[in-house]
Design a protein around this nucleic acid. Sequence first.
DNA 1: ACATAGTGTAATATATACTTGACATTACAT
DNA 2: ATGTAATGTCAAGTATATATTACACTATGT
Lengths: 71, 71
Amino acid sequence: MSKNLKLKAARAERDMTQKALADAAGVSRQTINAIEQGEYNPTIKLCLTICRVLGKTLDELFWEDEEDETL
Amino acid sequence: MSKNLKLKAARAERDMTQKALADAAGVSRQTINAIEQGEYNPTIKLCLTICRVLGKTLDELFWEDEEDETL
DNA sequence: ACATAGTGTAATATATACTTGACATTACAT
DNA sequence: ATGTAATGTCAAGTATATATTACACTATGT
């Protein structure tokens, strides 16, 4: 899995720390970090929560332009 | 969790059965059924795969207009 | 009446999302 | 030099997404 730099950027745009976003989304800081690092594959519900916190859409933060992905 | 009727509709629009979508997405039929029934909360990666199969965006199939959600 | 396709559902098993607690590093204050 | 805030990472545990097998129900076709 590849890093989610769009998320990192959106967070920066709001001047929020990983912890602040984690608290606002109701998850642990490690979870946000792991998502940004591409270490795992969040659930859609968590993605939606993050989108609402950051004022972005799913497509803006989580759409991936294919790449092989070796699913 | 509430049912995903948008997914069911998009599948119908393509005249695909749950099994056909499951095969195309590389998951089991029960997984597709459970998502449509709102029994669970798919990962973003699976959502992306489903979107590509059905030719829809994440926002079209998985955006939810808040509702409490009791996360 | 029988077969078959599509769907909903249940039980058990496995992979993995997510938690908690902890430690290291960098950078920026004082 | 010391403190602290932000980030990255690790290890062990819990919750849940997903697989597999199986069964029931409704249509529709023969």
